[in-house]
Simulated scan of single mutants.
Amino acid sequence: MASRADQVAANLSLAKFGEATELRKRIWFTLGALVIFRLLSFVPLPGVDPVVLADLYDQTRGGVLDIFNTFSGGSLERMSLIALGVMPYITASIVVQLAAALSPTLAAVKKEGESGRKKLNQYTRYGTVGLTAVQGYFIAVGLESFASQSGLQAVVEPGYMFRVGAVISLVGGTLFLMWLGEQITSRGIGNGISLIIMAGIVAQMPTFVGNLMEGSRTGSIGAMTIVGLIAMVAGLVLFISFMERAQRRVLIQYPKRATQHGVMQADRSHLPLKVNTAGVIPPIFASSLLLMPLTVSQFAGNATAGETAFGD
């Protein structure tokens, strides 16, 4: 079955675009929702010192935080209300889907049709709340334990009130993004969660281009290197688009049937199956697992250095 985006692309015509009022409304609604997402990425958590936080992020570059920061559009770097982005929702969705394949009870719920799908979505939302609360608590504790080399702490007033406020803020931000993605799916052009992730990645592209231009100006990056990177990115986008649209067509052949007007000839059809059914989830988790030891070691070293500086 074709998705909403495929149907829009198939029926899109510049001559008829002025008459497509519903399509314009969906596009404007999607753009407005993405603007709200970008505005929220600049709203910081209450009680956090942004200067010390920037020092903390500079010391932990190169780990799994860079991946999460890219998907959240720089929200993690600024420790905003939506610092965790939609990653807890994606993780909870994968866990529920795996549990539905392994648990007979959830498998029976999945076979109930539309009602079963709504129940699994509700379980996913509960899992998102729990996972976000756990991650938010550890983030709050980690921020309290960090101090810069000058002895300044990342949290202005550490304590249980800050932890509770941080957990509530992060849970609310993630749930709002989840709701916003569902609204884009139903009232926008579809694939709301994917569009939010894409908006976060695209928002980081000016920084990437600026770093390339700065490297070219200072001479640390050669012109051929920049041309090679641009060609590689363009080729990678084309290859990903090709694999995303690729289908394996399974032949379906119908036998001859006798009718009132004689024998009907055998008919042929095909069942389109996507080649890439998993999407980008496996690379995301593979990169996270590979970078996890580096991230843990960096946090352990920063926490020890912060305690020493604060003790002095």
Results as ranks from 00 to 15, higher is better:
Gly63Ser: 10
Thr91Lys: 05
Phe138Asn: 06
Val134Glu: 00
Val96Glu: 04
Asp49Ile: 14
Val155Leu: 08
Ile27Glu: 05
Leu34Asn: 03
Gln97Pro: 00
Glu114Asp: 12
Asn121Cys: 02
Ile90Val: 12
Ser148Tyr: 01
Tyr137Pro: 00
Ile90Thr: 09
Thr128His: 01
Ser75Thr: 09
Phe68Gln: 05
Ala108Gly: 10
Gln97Tyr: 01
Gly116Trp: 04
Ala99Ser: 09
Gln59Cys: 09
Glu22Val: 15
Arg125Lys: 00
Ser145Asn: 12
Phe68Cys: 07
Gln135Cys: 11
Val141Tyr: 00
Pro104Met: 12
Ala20Val: 12
Pro46Ala: 14
Arg125Ser: 09
Arg26Val: 14
Ala15Tyr: 05
Tyr126Trp: 07
Lys110Pro: 08
Ala101Gly: 12
Ser115Trp: 09
Gly136Asp: 03
Thr30Gln: 04
Gly85Phe: 00
Ser148Gln: 08
Gln97Lys: 09
Val155Phe: 01
Gly18Tyr: 04
Gly116Glu: 09
Gln149Gly: 14
Gly63Thr: 08
Leu143Ile: 13
Val141Ser: 05
Pro44Arg: 08
Tyr123Ile: 13
Ser80Tyr: 01
Leu98Val: 13
Leu23Ile: 13
Val129Ser: 07
Gly151Tyr: 04
Val35Trp: 03
Ile27Ser: 06
Lys118Gly: 11
Pro88Thr: 09
Leu23Trp: 02
Trp28Pro: 04
Pro50Met: 15
Pro46His: 07
Ser145Leu: 09
Asp49Val: 14
Thr91Ser: 11
Pro44Glu: 11
Gln153Arg: 08
Glu19Ser: 15
Asn121Phe: 07
Phe146Thr: 10
Ala83Tyr: 02
Leu31Tyr: 04
Gly73Glu: 02
Ser148Leu: 08
Phe42Trp: 11
Gln97Gly: 10
Val141Ile: 12
Leu102Thr: 15
Ser75His: 03
Leu143Trp: 01
Gly151Asn: 09
Gly136Ala: 09
Phe17Ile: 15
Ile139Thr: 06
Tyr126Ala: 12
Leu56Asn: 03
Ala54Asn: 10
Arg61Trp: 04
Leu45Lys: 02
Val155Pro: 00
Gly74His: 01
Thr21Asn: 11
Thr30His: 04
Val35Lys: 07
Val51Gln: 08
Thr30Ser: 08
Phe29Gly: 14
Ala100Val: 11
Gly142Lys: 01
Phe42Ser: 15
Phe68Gly: 06
Ile67Gln: 03
Thr60Arg: 04
Pro46Met: 11
Ile27His: 02
Tyr137His: 03
Phe29Pro: 03
Ser41His: 07
Ser41Ala: 15
Leu143Ala: 10
Phe17Asn: 08
Asp55Gln: 11
Val129Asn: 05
